[in-house]
C-alpha cells in the first residue's frame, strides 16, 4: 500500500513544486535511514554525515566532467561509484573517530566535518568558493522531477532492504549489543572495531549515493551547501523524531519533517515561522513519545490490546521475529 502510494505519487500529482518537495523528502529519508544503520544501531551519534553527502556531490561533479558523461541517466549510472567514494572516505574517518566513544565521538565527527568543509573551500579540484557544476539532464521542464524522484525511490528501497538485512543478521544484533554495553560485547568475542567500521561504511555509502543525486538535481555543488552543518543535525533529528534504531522510524521522521519544512518555507517564505512550528512539533514528540514516534505508537497499540499483547509471546512461533520486533 505505502509502496504503491510512493510509486504512483508523481504520476498522479504532476505539479513540479509538489514533486520537488517529494524528491527532497525522499533524499532525507534515504539519508536518515542510512545514518540510522550506523548511529541508530550502534548508539554512536555521528554528527558529520554531511562529509559523505557532500563528497557524493563532488564525486559526481568530478566524474561527469572528467569522464565527459552527459546529464540524466548516464550520470545516474555513476551514483554507485559516488557511494563507493563515500565508503572509501569513511574508512580513514571511521578509523580516527571510532577510537573514541560517546561525547568525544560526537565532537570528533563534528571536527572532521569542518576539516572537510575547509578543504572544499581551499583545494584546487573542488573549485573553491565558486564550486562545481553538474551537467544538465536532457529532461523536459514539465517532467524534470520524475526521473530524480524514481531514482531516489529506488535508492530508498535498497537502503531499507540493507537496513533490514543488517538488523536481522548477527552483525546487526552485535551492533545493538555494542549500543547497550560495548565492553561486555567485547568480552563475548564481538569484534567491535570491525563491526562499527563496517556499519559506518555502509552508512556512508548510501549517504554519498543520495548526495550525488541531490546535487545532480540542484545542478551545482558549493562547499557551504555540500558540507552543511544543518544537514548533520537534520538527519539526526529526523531519526530521533521517528525513533532511532528502528527500521522505519528515521524514514518516517524524515518524511514528516522534511515535507513540513519545505511546505512551510514555500507557503510562508523563509522568514523563520516554520522553525516555530518545527520546534513545537519536536517538543510534543519529546514530551509524549521520548523514544520517537514509531516506537511510541507501537507501545500505545500494544497497551490498547492487553489481551493480545499478553498472548503474543506464547503465540509467536518464530520467536526471533517477535523478539526483533520489540526493538525495531
Amino acid at each position: 500500500m505505502v509502496f504503491a502510494v510512493f510509486a504512483l505519487f508523481p504520476v498522479v500529482i504532476t505539479d513540479p513544486t509538489t514533486t520537488s518537495i517529494a524528491f527532497f523528502a525522499l533524499v532525507f529519508m534515504v539519508a536518515a535511514a542510512s545514518w540510522n544503520i550506523f548511529s541508530g544501531y550502534t548508539g554512536y551519534l555521528a554528527l558529520g554525515h554531511a562529509v559523505f553527502f557532500g563528497s557524493g556531490g563532488y564525486a559526481l561533479a568530478l566524474l561527469t566532467s572528467h569522464l565527459h558523461v552527459s546529464g540524466g541517466w548516464p550520470a545516474f549510472a555513476l551514483l554507485p561509484l559516488c557511494g563507493l567514494v563515500g565508503a572509501l572516505i569513511s574508512i580513514p574517518v571511521g578509523l580516527i573517530a571510532l577510537r573514541t566513544r560517546r561525547h568525544t565521538f560526537v565532537v570528533v565527527t563534528i571536527a572532521i566535518f569542518f576539516i572537510f568543509q575547509l578543504a572544499a573551500f581551499n583545494l584546487g579540484f573542488t573549485g573553491g568558493t565558486s564550486g562545481l557544476f553538474l551537467p544538465l539532464p536532457p529532461f523536459s521542464a514539465a517532467n524534470f522531477n520524475q526521473p530524480f524522484y524514481y531514482v531516489a525511490f529506488i535508492i530508498l528501497l535498497v537502503t531499507l532492504l540493507v537496513s533490514w538485512l543488517v538488523r536481522r543478521s548477527r552483525f546487526g544484533l552485535q551492533l545493538l549489543a555494542i549500543r547497550d554495553d560495548e565492553d561486555r560485547a567485547l568480552g563475548l568475542g564481538v569484534k567491535t572495531r570491525r563491526l562499527k567500521l563496517s556499519a559506518f561504511m555502509i552508512s556512508a555509502f548510501f549517504v554519498a549515493m543520495i548526495g550525488g543525486l541531490y546535487f545532480d538535481f540542484v545542478g551545482q555543488v558549493f562547499p557551504n551547501t555540500a558540507f552543511d552543518p544543518l544537514f548533520d543535525l537534520s538527519i539526526a533529528l529526523m531519526a530521533f523524531f521517528g525513533g532511532m534504531g528502528t527500521l522505519i522510524g528515521p524514514v518516517f521522521g524524515a518524511l514528516v519533517l522534511e515535507s513540513l519544512q519545505q511546505y512551510l518555507t514555500l507557503s510562508f517564505s523563509s522568514n523563520g515561522t516554520y522553525l516555530i512550528a518545527y520546534g513545537v512539533l519536536f517538543l510534543l514528540v519529546i514530551l509524549i513519545m521520548p523514544q520517537g514516534v514509531v516506537p511510541g505508537v507501537r507501545d500505545l497499540l500494544r497497551r490498547r490490546r492487553p489481551a493480545a499483547g499478553g498472548g503474543t509471546l506464547a503465540e509467536t512461533d518464530q520467536p526471533l521475529a517477535g523478539a526483533a520486533g520489540a526493538t525495531r
Binding site: 536481522r168 543478521s169 548477527r170 552483525f171 546487526g172 544484533l173 552485535q174 545493538l176 549489543a177 549500543r179 547497550d180 554495553d181 561486555r184 560485547a185 563475548l188 568475542g189 564481538v190 569484534k191 570491525r194 563491526l195 563496517s198 520467536p319 526471533l320 523478539a323 526483533a324 520489540a326 526493538t327
Partner: peptide, 29 residues
C-alpha cells in the same frame, strides 16, 4: 547484559568460536 535486547537475543550475541568475519556478518541472527 544488554538491557534493551530480549533475553533470547542476549543469548545470540556471542560470536561462535572459529567463525570467520564474513560468515559472522552475513549470517542471520
Amino acid at each position: 547484559m544488554f538491557p534493551r535486547l530480549t533475553v533470547l537475543e542476549n543469548m545470540l550475541v556471542a560470536t561462535q568460536r572459529e567463525e570467520g568475519w564474513l560468515r559472522g556478518v552475513s549470517r542471520l541472527a
